[in-house]
Amino acid sequence: MHERLSEVLSPYKGRRDALIPILQNVQAEIGYLPDEAMLEIAKTTGLPESRVYAVASFYAQFRFKPRGRHTIMVCRGTACHVRGAEKILEETERALGIVEGETTEDKKYTLETVACIGCCALAPCIMIDEDVEAKLTPKMVSEILDGRAE
């Protein structure tokens, strides 16, 4: 990990203002932000460690734990909400046996909610990695999950 980190960080020596792009690039490389990576970012930029974490933990994009191979994001946008997003979330939680924010034991799925994926006309919808599954009903959830290979 260290080598990958130094490569990502090399253009950013002393660049305090670039903290958010740095965090984004490091997460893109490693998948999440382990403490060691944040310490390294602090050293590179000259920012206090606490500040790196302060900024990273403020934004929804950043994760501090390893994730599943696939991410399911249940949209909780307004349009999805009035069309039953809550039931979709509950059904997804039931189908996966985890709650929002958790990763399945086999590390296949991480389940999250998202403020809005902007597919309001297709509500309610979920996003599995880059694919949007639209106009869902609770019973479609398990069908979709069952139908997905690795």
Partner: peptide, 26 residues
């Protein structure tokens, strides 16, 4: 181009500029 990292409050102008500076969007 500055890709925002996910915080609704950054739609507020001063939070947005602080975010570009690499800070918490408060």
């Amino acid at each position: 181009i500055f890709p925002g990292a996910g915080a609704f409050v950054c739609g507020e102008s001063t939070a947005l500029t602080l975010s570009i500076e690499g800070k918490r969007g408060m």
